[in-house]
Amino acid sequence: MAQQGPTSPVPVPTAQDAHQPAPKPVREGIDLIVNDKRYRHTGDKAMPLLWYLRDVLRLTGAKYGCDQGDCGFCTVIVDGKAVASCQTKMEKLSGKRVTTVEGLADKDGKLHPVQQAWIDEDAIMCGFCQPGQIMAAVDLLSRQKNPSDADIDKIGNLCRCGSYGRIRKAIKRAADTLKKDGKA
């Protein structure tokens, strides 16, 4: 579907290529890398990463679903590990590297095997939980080449639409692809 990203008339904080040296600090803040771009957060240090991503960076792939770390809709990857971004305060993120669902496909838009597996298994229903599910699966597959059903259950992300069966199949399909690609 021809979907437009959220409109954002306010200037998004300047991003710089992460391979360039960091600029001299102009204002106190928390420096972090999100999807390979550098950012400096100068607001409330207690702000959860979820709201920084959604409201400040306008990266709205990570979703809100609860306030207690229970649903997993907000899952992103920080320094290689899945976290609930609603439970991760900005003050903990200095120097960290964050990957959101928007940063998963490669530069020319080729989908990550997990994303592709989600499409191939038609795992989405309303779709709202799925960016979080996908990030949790990427994390699992980075640790487990052959995840068992129990490993998958342990993810514990909620799907209100009940797409668990297809999510499970998608994870296994992605595991196969990753093995074939030798990426895992």
Binding site: M1, Q3, Q4, G5, P6, L59, T60, G61, A62, T100, V101, E102, L104, A105, L111, Q115, W118, I119, D122, I124, G127, Q130, P131, I134
Partner: peptide, 10 residues
Amino acid sequence: AHAVVTGSLA
């Protein structure tokens, strides 16, 4: 599906 898995669906 594509828009959902890339996080671009608004």
